[in-house]
Amino acid sequence: NRRVIAMPSVRKYAREKGVDIRLVQGTGKNGRVLKEDIDAFLAGGAKP
């Protein structure tokens, strides 16, 4: 169970979209999950 780095607003956005943030690959600094990562996940998967 890895620790997810994300701003509270991004965590809320993921919850609102029904996304398990632990499944999203973060592309920000130090692997931080960004809102754009949530959108990319919803569009068909995590960014490479």
Score class of each variant (00 low, 15 high):
N1L: 04
N1R: 04
R2L: 08
R2A: 00
R2W: 06
R2V: 01
R2D: 12
R3S: 05
R3L: 09
V4P: 09
V4T: 07
I5S: 13
M7E: 15
M7G: 13
P8S: 11
P8K: 11
P8Y: 13
P8Q: 05
S9P: 14
S9T: 12
S9D: 09
V10Q: 05
V10N: 03
V10E: 13
R11K: 05
R11N: 04
R11T: 14
R11C: 15
R11A: 14
K12F: 12
K12G: 13
Y13L: 12
Y13W: 04
Y13C: 07
Y13M: 12
Y13E: 09
A14G: 07
A14R: 02
A14Q: 03
R15A: 12
R15P: 01
E16V: 06
E16R: 05
E16P: 00
K17M: 05
K17Q: 09
K17D: 02
K17N: 12
K17Y: 10
G18M: 10
G18I: 06
G18K: 14
G18H: 06
G18P: 02
V19T: 12
V19K: 02
V19D: 00
V19Y: 00
D20V: 04
D20H: 05
D20S: 06
I21F: 10
I21V: 09
I21E: 09
I21G: 02
I21K: 02
I21R: 02
I21P: 11
R22H: 13
R22C: 15
R22K: 15
R22G: 14
R22L: 14
R22V: 06
R22Y: 08
L23C: 10
L23H: 10
L23N: 14
V24D: 00
V24E: 00
V24F: 03
V24N: 00
Q25F: 07
Q25H: 03
G26K: 02
G26D: 01
G26V: 04
G28K: 04
G28V: 05
G28P: 01
G28I: 01
K29T: 11
N30M: 11
N30E: 14
N30I: 01
N30V: 09
G31M: 02
G31K: 04
V33M: 07
V33R: 01
V33D: 00
V33G: 00
L34R: 07
L34I: 05
K35R: 08
K35E: 04
K35Q: 11
K35N: 02
K35M: 07
K35G: 06
K35H: 14
D37E: 00
D37V: 00
D37R: 00
I38T: 03
I38Q: 01
I38D: 00
D39E: 10
D39L: 04
D39I: 02
D39H: 03
A40T: 13
A40G: 14
A40K: 13
A40S: 13
F41D: 08
F41H: 14
L42D: 15
L42K: 09
L42N: 04
L42A: 07
A43I: 11
A43C: 07
A43K: 02
G44M: 11
G44R: 12
G44E: 13
G45F: 03
G45D: 11
G45R: 08
G45H: 06
G45E: 10
A46N: 15
K47M: 05
K47H: 12
K47L: 06
P48M: 04
P48T: 15
